[in-house]
Every structure is written in structure tokens, then in C-alpha cells.
Design a protein around this nucleic acid. Structure first.
Lengths: 296, 296
DNA sequence: ATATACCATCCAAAAAACAGATAGATGAAC
DNA sequence: GTTCATCTATCTGTTTTTTGGATGGTATAT
């Protein structure tokens, strides 16, 4: 391993521009530097890279082949450079998100896609802890950013910011008896099974609208949606989640005549102020807030 | 791109051995060289790679991450080194084989596997030209090595070496009427369709044993085998090709009572003496000859 | 034929790499 | 607690390499 990165860069530039002089200009060096660099590289590798018989040096067949490998090295070096630059600038190695339910994945995914482009070297970790666990994870530093519905028992060191309101209408399966009615009254709802969200810890959800007498409690909105689709009862579901099945005609949106306004839930992003955020975390936080602002 | 390969090697060695002194000994340099190399690398990257608070330097988390990329660079450099060494030693970029029939692929493949390990950077090109074309390709330099059955009209500049004898018994489908007979006579064979090899140019095969009155002429032993399997007639097939289907009970080996000895074909490797062979070509040629010698 | 742009080579100056020496620090052994 | 071996950072003078400018020879276009 006698050659140097500068020699490889000279090789690459010369091959790319088609002349040693042009390569020198491009690299901001003297022509003699490129000339000797290439000559030394050839001596080190034991392979002639250019045919110098003409006015312009022409890549030999071997040179063409070796150029591929040389470029790979240069690229890997640029990569190391960029990565170390990121690290030096304070981009964290890993960012852990604590999302309070897998049901948020559909709308979250596009933002994560942009994140992946912007921070390709950051390991993204996605966890879906229950409500209380989410706060605990932020406090302990296990996760840096939380995403979920507004919580009543917020910790004073946990900072929150709204990232939008979500309406939660009532849904049943398209072939459910309730779906036949244009408008439903409280009495109708009481008669059929209601499916409500629950959490492993049993902590009461702040939006606890229990109406029916027959109840199933299910952990996670995705599971609730699945049960609703199959006709096991009616449930309150966030609009963004019901959108797809509603359009596909799998579920039906009830029109209760006794609820003046639709229940609305606040979505928020949470973080622990004492834990310093890395660049990637701050970017993601801001991206979530920005998205909410843009959608008014 | 300020860092050098030596610095990366020092980084790698230090991380590997766990001490700058040990790294120096391993690389055959002074300890101060490693110390300053690592320090300069850290300054260039803007990231501390080692925690020097203890007796031995300990990789930081960032160092651990960057080490992966550094190793990739070192590896790529070693690769370039190795490849250029091969090229300098006269290993050709591409080796073209002219095999006279795809039916040789089954026995040829293992040798090509060894070849791939020995010469991973050589592009292997496999062509299956007809008899006359094979010679023409060798003469023109389009192919460097030929493999096939012995030819009568050999060119004087084409060198050949035997790589074994192949017996070619007669086969029919297992459910063919002829398969019922313990021994078959010439009259039996005449009555049923014979399938013989032919070539696009129509040049006569030197082993032209036409017996039956009903004949199909087919280009390529693999196609003949397929037709025999499906009961379209009997044919002479090289033993190595018939082995599999024979074991599987798909075809049956005829016992002619009028042929004292089995027809034997000579397999040979060919090359054009005036065209200089590269290392890989010579290796493959010798491997084929060696294989024949080992099998007597 | 002339002009232009190219390359290899030479040269002196600047820069970098190097080994050895030294001093301070750490951890293991006693 | 002391000793001892071994570690790292840093300094130093020397050696080696790199650098840019100048020069001369050569290929191509006008």
C-alpha cells in the first residue's frame, strides 16, 4: 500500500478531464504535481494507466479497470469525511422514537423517508411503548422523542408541542346493523358492542367516552380497526386511520344525533428538556411541528 | 480529504491491538509515529477517536463507528493493490472460452468454480460456437481457449491436448419398445428412429455412425438427450451427460450385440499458439489437462 | 509554418514524516 | 505504599517527500 489518496485523486481527475493540466487546474495544483503523482501511482501499481503517445493522455484498458476501484476508494474517503463531519457537528449516532401506537406509522412514514435522506447515517429506532412507559423512556434517555396523543399527567421536565388535531368519528363495519341507519341515537349505540382503547397498565385514557353497555377493550388502534372491519362492534377511530378502509367501503361512518361536535384529540411531540438533543432529533422535532403548521 | 491511508492504518492497528505502542510494533514504526498519526487523524476528522484517560486508549463510540468506514477504505486499497498486482503479473482482464456444446457445462462447472476463486477479477466469457466457428474464434483471437471433441480438420497453428476419453453408449427412453430387449441387434436399431448430432454448417462429424433408416438431426447433445427422454428415438450420448437421467430411470442403456467395443470420443482443449495466453488462461488450460491426468 | 496546449523533467524551497529521547501517568506486582 | 514495566504525548534534529515554477520536447489545429 504505497500509493496515497492524493495520487488516486490525481488519477481520477486526469481520467475525468482527459488531461493532466486540466486535472491540475481542477484540483488547484501545479501540473507537475499531477504528472508526478500519476507517474508514481503507475510505478507503485506496476501498471501503466495512461497512453501518452498522443496529445492527450488516453486511459489504457487496465487504467479503465483500475479507475473503478480507485473511484471506490475516493468515494469511501468522502463518505468517511462526511460522516465524521456530521458527528463533529453533533449529529447523533442513534435516534430513538417512542410512538404511543403503531397506528401512527402510516402518516409518520413519509416524514421518516425525508429523515432517511437527510440523515442517512443515523440509526433510527422505533419503539411503541404504552403511555406511562413513553414518559419513562424520555426521562431515562432511552428515547429522545415521543409522539402520541396528549396526556393528562404530563411531567414538568417533559416539553410538548402540538403537532395537530385529529378528529375521531365513530365507525362500524359496512355490513353492521348500525350502518343501515342514517343517524344513530345514544340508545342505538348502547345496544351494540363498543370497542375502546386500553393500555397494559390499565391507566385511564383521558378521552374515556364509554357509551355502550357491552365493551371490548383492545390495546392499539390498528387492532381496533381490524375488529371493527370484521363487524365486532363500533369504535371511535382517528380520521387518518379510518380514511383508507372508509374509501374502500369496508367501514361506515356513523352520524350520532346526540354529539354536537366530533371528539377531537391533540397530537403532540414530546421530549425531555434536560437531555440535550442531537441535530437529527431537533430536525425531526421541527419537521413534525412544521408539518402541523403547514396543515393549519 | 486531508487524512492519509497511513493514518487510517494507524487508526485501525491501534483499535485492533488496543494500544499505540503495540500498533507501532505491528506496523514496524516508532510509537511517536502512531501517536501523531492518530492525533492528526482526530484533528482532521474533528472527532476524538480514543479516550486516553486510562492506561490504554479506549475507542470512543464515534471512533467505533468511524472505524468501520476506515476499514472499508483500507480494504478497498488492498483490493486495488491486489488487482493491480494481478494485472502487472499478466492476468488478463477477460478470458473467453469457446465450448463446442452446452452439454459440457455440467462437468465444466466445478472447474470454473475453482477458477472463480483463483481469479475473481477475471471476466469469464462462455461461448458455444459450432465446430468450424470454434477454430475461427481461436484464430481471430475472439476466444482464447477451446473445449470440445476431437476434430479431423485441425488447423496447424491450433495446438491441442487431450483432456480425456468419453464413451458414448446408445440410449433410449425407459418406456421405449427397444428398452424391453436385453440385447439389441442392428436390425432392431434400423427399425427405430435414430437421433444424431448435426451442426449449422452441415460439416460432417468425424464420428458419423448412421445406422437407422429414420433419422432426426439435432444441434446439441442436450437437445438430443431431451428428445431421447421423451421417447422420440435412440441416440449415442456421452456417458457424463447420460449419467443423471440414467440414474433417475428416465433413460435406458442399450446393449448392441454387433458392436464389439463402445464408441469412444476424445475430448480436447485447444488454443492458438501465436496468441499469447494470460495467466488465467494458462491456469485453466493446465487445470483441464491436470484433471484428465488425475482421472487417468 | 506557426501557435497553442500538452507532457516530462529538473530544481530549489517548503513541508511532512520519521526515529529517538524524555517526561508524566497508569496499573499491576509486591 | 513503593516499585516497576509499560503506556502516551511531546520535543528535536534529520531525512524524505512534496510542491510549484521553469524549461524543453512533442502533438494537433489553423
Amino acid at each position: 500500500m504505497n500509493f496515497s489518496i492524493e495520487q488516486l485523486q490525481a488519477f481520477d481527475a486526469a481520467a475525468h478531464t482527459g488531461s493532466f493540466s486540466a486535472a491540475a487546474r481542477r484540483l488547484g495544483k501545479a501540473q507537475s504535481v499531477i504528472s508526478t503523482a500519476v507517474a508514481n501511482l503507475e510505478a507503485d501499481l506496476g501498471v501503466p494507466l495512461f497512453d501518452r503517445s498522443g496529445r492527450y493522455p488516453a486511459l489504457t484498458a487496465e487504467g479503465k479497470r483500475l479507475l473503478l476501484d480507485a473511484r471506490r476508494i475516493i468515494e469511501a474517503c468522502a463518505n468517511l469525511q462526511a460522516l465524521s463531519g456530521e458527528i463533529a457537528a453533533g449529529v447523533e449516532h442513534r435516534l430513538t422514537l417512542a410512538v404511543d401506537d403503531t397506528s401512527h406509522l402510516p402518516w409518520l412514514e413519509p416524514i421518516l423517508g425525508v429523515f432517511a435522506e437527510r440523515f442517512p447515517n443515523v440509526e433510527l429506532e422505533l419503539l411503541f411503548p404504552l403511555l406511562d412507559d413513553q414518559i419513562a423512556m424520555l426521562l431515562s434517555g432511552r428515547a429522545q422523542i415521543g409522539i402520541g396523543y396528549e396526556q393528562t399527567n404530563a411531567h414538568k421536565e417533559i416539553e410538548t408541542r402540538s403537532i395537530g388535531m385529529v378528529r375521531a368519528p365513530l365507525f362500524v363495519a359496512a355490513d353492521h346493523p348500525l350502518a343501515a341507519k342514517k343517524r344513530v341515537g345514544r340508545a342505538d349505540l348502547i345496544k351494540h358492542r363498543q370497542i375502546v382503547i386500553t393500555s397494559r397498565g390499565g391507566a385511564p385514557h383521558h378521552f374515556d367516552v364509554l357509551i355502550a353497555s357491552k365493551v371490548w377493550r383492545v390495546e392499539g388502534d390498528l387492532a381496533i380497526l381490524e375488529l371493527v372491519k370484521r363487524g365486532h362492534g363500533w369504535a371511535m377511530l382517528p380520521e387518518f386511520l379510518a380514511e383508507g378502509p372508509l374509501g374502500a367501503g369496508e367501514i361506515f361512518r356513523l352520524q350520532p344525533d346526540f354529539i354536537p361536535e366530533l371528539p377531537v384529540m391533540r397530537m403532540e411531540v414530546l421530549w425531555h428538556r434536560p437531555h440535550a438533543q442531537g441535530k437529527a432529533g431537533i430536525w425531526l422535532r421541527d419537521a413534525l411541528i412544521r408539518r402541523a403548521a403547514e396543515r393549519n
